[in-house]
Amino acid sequence: MPGRWRAYYQRWHAATLSEMDPRLVGLMPELERFVPPAKVVDKMTYSALGAPELMPLVTRSGCVIVSGAETDVCVLSSLMGLIDLGLRTIVVADAVCSSSDQGHEYLLTLFSERYALQVEVAEADDVIEAWRR
């Protein structure tokens, strides 16, 4: 990666795909059965939109359901990009987490209140139920 990303990846080298146990970043068996037709896209930046192959999938769908680790870093970065694109965006509250409980809780509140016209916050069971309908 260019610029300051190089120092970042040197510092956090143990968290790179080349050093991690692939089972730690793979999909759970319950989700693996959906690939294909679903696609798995690896990202190298905070925002998932930094993965060029993701952009056509996201813009074609018109709706993005967001889950992930580090609510106050990667999820936030991806979410702001999705807001900029004007896409319907749903954050699954019980499918995001962070190493900072305070940051996590603050951002879920921020998404629900400040960005309420651009972001929906829902629980996984509610998303799955709506999908089934």
Rank of each mutant, 00 (worst) to 15 (best):
Val64Arg: 15
Gln118Asn: 05
Ala116Gln: 02
Ser100Asn: 09
Ser61Ile: 07
Ala93Met: 04
Ile83Pro: 11
Cys63Asp: 09
Asp94Asn: 15
Tyr115Gln: 06
Leu85Arg: 14
Asp72Arg: 09
Glu70Pro: 04
Phe111His: 00
Gly81Asp: 12
Asp94Glu: 09
Ser99Tyr: 14
Val66Ile: 04
Ala69Lys: 10
Glu70Ala: 03
Phe111Gly: 01
Ser112Asp: 08
Ile83Asp: 11
Leu108Glu: 09
Val64His: 14
Gln118Gly: 07
Leu79Thr: 06
Tyr106Ala: 15
Leu76Met: 13
Pro52Asp: 03
Thr89Val: 09
Gly86Cys: 02
Leu79Ile: 02
Ala48Asn: 08
Ser77Cys: 00
Arg88Gln: 14
Ser98Leu: 06
Gly103Glu: 07
Leu79Pro: 03
Gln102Ser: 15
Gly62Tyr: 07
Ser78Ala: 07
Leu49His: 13
Ser98Gln: 01
Ile65His: 12
Val92Phe: 09
Thr59Leu: 00
Ala48Glu: 03
Leu108Thr: 07
Leu79Trp: 09
Cys97Asp: 14
Val119Tyr: 04
Thr109Gln: 11
Val119Ile: 07
Ser100Phe: 08
Cys74Thr: 00
Leu54Asn: 00
Ala48Asp: 03
Gln118Met: 09
Leu49Tyr: 15
Ile83Gly: 06
Gly86Asp: 07
Val119Asn: 07
Ala69Asn: 15
Val92Arg: 11
Ser61Thr: 03
Glu70Val: 06
Val66Glu: 10
Ile83Asn: 11
Asp84Val: 02
Glu113Asp: 02
Thr59Cys: 00
Ala95Ser: 15
Met80Ala: 09
Cys63Leu: 14
Cys97Pro: 06
Val91Phe: 05
Leu57Gln: 02
Glu105Met: 09
Gln102Ala: 15
Phe111Asp: 02
Gly68Thr: 04
Arg60Met: 12
Leu76Val: 01
Ser78Met: 09
Val73Ser: 05
Val92Trp: 10
Pro56Thr: 01
Gly50Ile: 10
Ala48Thr: 03
Leu82Lys: 04
Pro56Met: 02
Cys74Ile: 00
Val92Leu: 07
Asp101Phe: 00
Ser112Arg: 11
Gln102Arg: 15
Ala51Glu: 10
Ser112Gly: 09
Val92His: 11
Thr71Lys: 12
Ser61Arg: 04
Leu76Glu: 13
